[in-house]
Amino acid sequence: MGRTAIVTGGTRGIGAAIAKALKEAGYEVAANYGGNDEKANAFREETGIPVFKWDVSDEKACAEGIAKVEEELGPVEILVNNAGITRDAMFHKMDSAAWRAVIDTNLGSLFNMTRPIWDGMRERGFGRIVNIASINGQKGQMGQVNYSAAKAGEIGFTRALAQEGARKGITVNAICPGYIATEMVTAMPQEVLDKHILPQIPVGRLGEPEEIARAVIFLVADEAGFITGSTLTANGGQYMV
């Protein structure tokens, strides 16, 4: 059996592409999801990847969900923190509920998901953690103060935790996608995409979820042990750091 991996938000969009790629690469994969039972069940039927439902913003639910995955599939050695939400609004119109929902789900989940598996990774001397951040955590974005703050926090979390895990064989890295052809992005009016989004991207197109998945496969490999604390940008040249 391959190493066991959890992908949060793993039944749709980028997360689904990551889960599929991990399975194809020989890993035992658990796909977490938060709410859409219909999509999750369809994903399970299509891929054969087991799905597990819990709210990543709930610390107790994460601990219980991880325990169930480990009982069924084995110790978690790879974690991809992909789950995230948006609650966009200009800051002068943003309320505390929108702020807390995004911070708790997008950033708080990193603690909730990583803390229960951290001790096991340290004891075994191996671990791979990949946090899916965002271009907007690097450059900021109007109307997304909450989202940009959470994604910037993910990068800081990555860099700090990488230093703690390095001598225990645990790597912690981040990927910052740009505009990716997920349901959320492709639902935008074509005129908006053509006039306002695509002109910002030097390669002239949206990214594909599978392109982010390939980056994850590279970072979680046993052979990638010298790469840690890194932030990999995958944005078609839109923002170069």
Score class of each variant (00 low, 15 high):
V192A: 13
E223N: 09
L161F: 06
Y147F: 08
G26M: 07
L22P: 06
A215E: 12
I103P: 03
G34V: 04
C176N: 14
G165M: 07
N112L: 07
V102K: 02
L79E: 01
G15I: 10
S148V: 00
A149G: 12
I129W: 07
Y33H: 02
N235C: 08
L232E: 06
R128L: 03
V56A: 01
V56S: 04
M121F: 11
E77N: 11
P177L: 10
Q190K: 15
G120W: 03
I197D: 07
F43I: 08
N32M: 10
E46C: 01
V185E: 05
M240L: 12
P116N: 08
F111L: 07
G165L: 04
M121Y: 07
F126N: 04
A221I: 06
V51R: 09
E191D: 14
A149S: 15
A97D: 14
N112P: 09
G108Q: 06
A152S: 13
E191H: 10
A150G: 02
G156S: 03
N235T: 04
N81H: 04
G15M: 13
F226N: 09
G156V: 00
V185Q: 10
N32H: 11
A133E: 05
A181V: 06
G229Q: 03
M113A: 05
D119H: 13
P202A: 02
D119F: 03
V185K: 06
I6P: 13
T231S: 08
M184K: 13
N136P: 00
I66M: 03
L73D: 08
I197P: 00
M121K: 10
S148Y: 05
I201R: 03
R44H: 10
E64L: 04
V203H: 04
G178F: 02
R205F: 01
R128Y: 02
T231V: 15
F218E: 06
E183L: 11
A16H: 12
I78P: 01
N112R: 10
I18M: 13
V185W: 03
G156E: 09
A16L: 15
V51G: 06
A25T: 14
R159A: 09
S230V: 12
A181W: 13
R124L: 09
E211K: 10
A150V: 07
L219A: 09
G74C: 06
R100D: 15
I175Y: 00
S109H: 05
Q238C: 06
T86K: 01
T105V: 08
R167L: 13
S148E: 08
V172C: 12
R87D: 07
A133H: 03
D95W: 14
E183K: 13
V172M: 12
W99N: 00
E208C: 07
G125E: 04
I78L: 05
Y33E: 08
Y179L: 12
E210P: 07
A101T: 08
R122Q: 14
P202Y: 00
S57R: 07
N81D: 10
G143E: 09
A234M: 15
V29M: 10
I14P: 11
A224T: 06
M90R: 11
L79N: 01
